[in-house]
Nucleic acid binder design. Structure first.
Lengths: 275, 275
DNA sequence: GCAATAGTGTCTATAAGACAATATCTT
DNA sequence: AAGATATTGTCTTATAGACACTATTGC
């Protein structure tokens, strides 16, 4: 036992991490929100090569040793640095405090960054409506872009002729993030992460319609949401204005305590994706 | 504020992570199989510090620059090196050729490796019954371990008194892999990845029971599997022996062409997980 | 008033699960 | 022969979706 411990100490002292062919690690964030009932993603325009002038997901290098930070912390930091949206200090109330953040996937194909070997850990964020971002850090510009304007194909490429070209493999990362978002809305209550703390059922339906890109039957949706235990809970209040073109004032709800929807809200018509 | 931002930009422009901030990237594999109707995971006993003598998921450093390799390729290579199970060269027929491999998640908390900053990309593998592994590479020993023998709690810790202790944060990675596997069986046909190319419905049910840890109703399961389009297709043949204690010889099926199960096979009784 | 919308009621087709029945195998 | 199992049948209940209806709002 004592011998083991001495071996371990000697081993650690002799250890040079650079012997192990270190690669660089970045985080990139697919940050989604709903504006004017349309799904938007946060993009920055790159100020420097490679891909200078092209658009990209906000992201950057993880601080590995000095000021070593965890991966989700790096994601929040990059989001804040490059867009000017700030997360308040623990328990604060900056605009990023109410975002849902989850890990999406990691992308590491050799050659995906022309400079060097880079592994990128992608995160997915769901945000309620946020202010317009301000460019910072490496970004020449930052904006919420309607997802539909990016010409994404089913295979994660951009259609020729799309004006905002995405750098690196970010169109694939974005496509993966969108598919994850669509799936998460089926079996989790995360649609509420796109809403204000209090929301109406029609607002929630607008979230589903924006993310799924399909119209949903208002009556059936309404009953379904209320029938899933813990999805939403009533505030007892009624919205001030209908916000739409007419009709009665809808009631207000807040997110319930469910972490999973049971039964789930399944997307209609997925026949093509099954085979 | 503006000054802060410019400093940040200068810092990033000069930043060479390989000189100042080395991060190493590893892959770790949660390889699952079914032996004697019990779910097993592939483990290796570590020959060297840190955590020498403890058990761990097979894995190791990604070749980042010299002989740069992709992440899934690194996962297959580590699996092969440390266990002696070989994947045949493209289109070959080594024991690893029929395994399903998918990315699980990436773990990068500072301090998870006492030597240095290490980011680990975890993969999840579903394998049909494979031969016993042979230790190789850094491994002192390699074995299929019954998942139940590892004393995993719901929070990804190991219960005190468990004999095989897992190194690093591998008990958390394993717990995440198990939960992913349980979920995947619900809405994909991947249970067939645990089976031989031809299998019976009762064998498929045994897979579900092993992964979910619950008994399923034989009659309802049978009809359900056959009613999901593209899950399995008949071979017309019948199994030679029943393999169980009696009863008629079951029919043989092979995997169908569905990528998703619709409708899904939902796990019974998940009330606790919902809130 | 008119058009649009929130919320509820009703009906039908589908799916899940409990239970039963029968034929076929092992021991 | 006894016990176990594969497979099919039947019935009940839960759910999804189509459609209809009423009441309430903005214009």
């Amino acid at each position: 036992m004592t011998g083991d411990r001495r071996d371990e100490r000697e081993f650690l002292a002799d250890y040079d991490p650079r012997d192990y062919d270190p690669v660089s690690v970045t985080v990139d964030v697919v940050a989604l929100t709903i504006r004017d009932e349309v799904l938007h993603v946060l993009l920055v325009r790159r100020a420097h090569p490679p891909f200078a002038g092209m658009w990209a997901l906000p992201g950057g290098f993880v601080r590995g040793v000095r000021d070593a930070e965890g991966l989700p912390e790096a994601a929040v930091r990059e989001l804040a640095e490059e867009t000017g949206l700030s997360a308040g200090p623990t328990g604060g109330n900056g605009p990023l405090d109410r975002v849902h953040l989850e890990q999406l996937a990691t992308y590491g194909a050799p050659g995906r960054d022309p400079r060097m070997r880079v592994i990128s850990v992608a995160y997915l964020a769901f945000a309620p409506e946020l202010p317009d971002p301000e460019a910072g850090g490496d970004a020449a510009e930052a904006a919420w872009a309607p997802v539909g304007s990016l010409g994404l194909t089913g295979t994660g490429e951009q259609r020729p002729g799309t004006t905002r070209r995405l750098a690196f493999d970010h169109s694939r990362i974005l496509a993966d993030g969108l598919e994850r978002a669509r799936a998460k809305l089926e079996y989790t209550p995360l649609a509420t992460a796109f809403c204000a703390p209090e929301f109406t059922i029609p607002e929630l339906r607008a979230v589903y319609e924006a993310v799924w890109g399909e119209e949903l039957h208002a009556g059936n949706f309404h009953r379904k949401v209320l029938s899933v235990p813990g999805f939403v809970e009533s505030t007892g209040a009624t919205a001030e204005r209908t916000g739409r073109r007419g009709g009665p004032r809808p009631r207000l709800y807040r997110a319930g305590d469910a972490r999973l929807l049971h039964p789930a809200l399944l997307r209609p018509s997925r026949e093509e994706e099954i085979r």
